[in-house]
């Protein structure tokens, strides 16, 4: 009994250590005031026409850190859209386009993930007004690590 408790404690210790060590390692590599691990570039939102609609936001998310992270939620001003979701679109060999909401998008350590037409997008729903090419939206991306990134996304014409 005592032995089992001891082993459990050792396991937990190892697990915690495994979680901590890569982070400590990162700080050894980078200066204390280093750039954030997650950065976003080339963000844009597709313009809309008509009422009550939805549209997609696209971007490249880069993870310069040593640990994988995961985009888990996105926020936007409620005066722009009533809801924001993460979606994935696929086109099968049968030429059928399928779109579905997903829980999150993994961003590999030292890699990037592109949200682009025909793949992942951030879906803005319950739009409160049309988005026109002179708009710029601010999206707040929240990651599993707790990191938050504010993204400025200009609206581009529908085509």
């Amino acid at each position: 009994m005592r032995m089992r408790r001891f082993l459990l404690a050792v396991l937990i210790g190892v697990a915690l250590g495994a979680l901590l060590i890569p982070r400590l390692g990162d700080e050894d590599d980078d200066a204390p005031s280093s750039a954030p691990a997650i950065t976003v570039r080339d963000a844009w939102v597709r313009a809309t026409v008509g009422s009550g609609g939805m549209t997609g936001a696209f971007m490249v998310i880069e993870n310069n850190g040593g640990t994988a992270d995961r985009l888990v939620s996105v926020g936007v001003d409620a005066e722009i859209a009533g809801a924001v979701e993460i979606h994935e679109m696929t086109i099968g060999e049968d030429q059928v386009m399928r779109m579905r909401p997903i829980e999150g998008i993994d961003v590999p350590a030292g890699g990037n993930i592109e949200l682009k037409p025909g793949g992942y997008h951030i879906m803005l729903l319950e739009l409160q007004r049309d988005l026109t090419p002179d708009d710029t939206l601010t999206l707040t991306l929240t990651f599993e690590s707790g990191a938050q990134v504010e993204v400025s996304a200009p609206v581009r014409a529908m085509e």
Binding site: R46, G50, G53, M54, T55, G56, H87, M89, I91, M97, M99, P117, G118, H121, M123, M158, E159
Partner: peptide, 16 residues
């Protein structure tokens, strides 16, 4: 459908 966020507008842009 008009709420489709990318395939549909991309195709109409190609029609253009």
């Amino acid at each position: 459908y008009t709420n489709c966020p990318d395939i549909c507008p991309t195709t109409l842009a190609e029609f253009k």
